[in-house]
């Protein structure tokens, strides 16, 4: 642990900055999902229940991602996406979190 004085000092300084500058760096930025077609659809459909961290640590084949999306609906209480949305999400996941990525 650092010295209490130093911490208090830093806290005062940073509070001053916050008051003056407001909240910087506050954008959620799609939970760290990379930009590209399907980013919005993936973020919107998946993060209602869980964070993006369980997505970004995976490298799945198209078949496995397809199974995951089915499992989410059948076993995990996810809503059914319209089929074209589902395709966009699936393509996004395979592009960014597939075996080649």
């Amino acid at each position: 642990m650092r010295g209490r004085k130093l911490r208090t000092g830093l806290a005062c300084a940073c509070l001053g900055l916050m008051m003056a500058g407001g909240a910087s760096g506050q954008t959620s930025d799609f939970g760290g999902l990379p930009a590209g077609p399907g980013q919005l659809e993936t973020f919107g459909n998946c993060t209602a229940c869980h964070s993006t961290m369980i997505i970004t640590q995976q490298n799945f084949s198209r078949r496995t991602w397809d199974e995951v999306l089915t499992w989410m609906v059948e076993d995990q209480g996810m809503w059914e996406m319209p089929s074209e949305t589902r395709q966009i999400v699936l393509d996004y996941l395979v592009t960014h979190f597939g075996p080649e990525s």
Binding site: R7, T8, A11, C14, L17, M18, A23, S24, G25, Q26
Partner: peptide
Amino acid sequence: GGAIPFARNMPSGLIPS
């Protein structure tokens, strides 16, 4: 390491500096 007198005003989602 100390009190935060203006905690009510502290913006959410900001890592304390």
